[in-house]
């Protein structure tokens, strides 16, 4: 797999007096993957996201994004052409007063030709299911719709990677589902690499890779299944575990081991079926 982002012994602190938010972090992100970065507030996960596209520069060590060192100011545009970013507050990242104008903002900045922008904007809005709202004013949209507009704005720039910093933290369940569906579509239809920073563990269930951050360091790194089976560790750092898995774990502790590691309710039902069948025999 292609490495797209490299963290090499990265440490970061916001000022000299303050404690380091990231501590000697080394890790890589790969092309085409849906990576989920989990951690509670203050674990350093948002700082890491901002280091990826040069919004922050490492205090020590270096971050190489798509071959460009983020510490070099000349590389800024090249990095951001490749990596788009979506933030937590849906209100504070929409620039224009009409949805489609906002989606066009990025491509306009890149100096793309008029007809090409039009095409990209329409396609991006269709992909996130916001095409019928193209002439709407952003402030009349729901949080989930605004976030999808923001995502469309990145798609229209045709970046190869998209970093989302807690994009669902301020949304209701419906909005969260809409955003997550849009992200899955991005990955499947366009093959864009996704780095999702969140504290909702259920959003990590469908990721290719989960990185759990704690106290400025990587605490667990692996597939969702590998990560979530570490129930006690996750709980000890204040993170939740998917409820179906927690139920299976509780059953196991009471002497009923249904086997497997069910992360979703459907998986639980499947495991349970298998379990009752073998038991029945």
């Amino acid at each position: 797999m292609n490495k797209i982002i490299e963290f090499k012994n990265v440490s970061f602190s916001y000022s000299d007096e303050e404690e380091r938010v990231l501590k000697n972090l080394s890790l890589d992100f790969y092309e085409g993957q849906f990576t989920c970065v989990l951690g509670h507030n203050g674990s350093g996960k948002s700082t890491m996201a901002k280091l990826i596209n040069a919004l922050l520069i490492p205090t020590e060590g270096s971050v190489i994004s798509f071959g460009f060192d983020t510490a070099d100011e000349k590389n800024e545009t090249d990095i951001r052409r490749n990596i788009g970013m979506v933030f937590q507050n849906p209100d504070n990242q929409i620039v224009a007063t009409i949805v489609e104008d906002d989606v066009a903002f990025g491509p306009e900045n890149l100096g793309i030709e008029r007809s090409e922008i039009r095409q990209r904007v329409d396609e991006a809005l269709k992909l996130v299911d916001m095409y019928e709202y193209r002439r709407h004013e952003p402030h009349r949209l729901s949080g989930g719709q605004k976030q999808r507009v923001a995502i469309a704005g990145i798609i229209a720039m045709q970046t190869r990677c998209i970093v989302l910093d807690e994009p669902t933290a301020m949304l209701d369940p419906k909005g969260r589902r809409e955003v997550m569906n849009a992200l899955m579509k991005l990955k499947e239809d366009l093959g864009i690499s996704i780095i999702l920073v969140t504290h909702f563990m259920d959003e990590a269930v469908n990721a290719d890779r989960v990185i759990v951050m704690n106290d400025g360091e990587v605490c667990v790194d692996g597939t969702p299944r590998e990560v979530f089976t570490k129930v006690d560790l996750l709980k000890s750092i204040g993170l939740a575990v998917p409820k179906p898995l927690e139920l299976a774990e509780a059953l196991r502790k009471s002497g009923v081991d249904i086997g497997g590691t069910p992360l979703t309710s459907q998986e639980f039902v499947n495991e349970y079926k298998k379990f009752t069948e073998t038991r029945g025999q």
Binding site: V95, E108, N109, I117
Partner: peptide, 22 residues
């Protein structure tokens, strides 16, 4: 936050900018 979001979308001012609307 808006300034961050704008610079993430490669906004560097009016030079070399194209426009979708005519």
């Amino acid at each position: 936050e808006l300034a961050d979001a704008m610079s993430c979308r490669c906004y560097t001012g009016g030079d070399n900018r194209t426009r979708m609307r005519q």
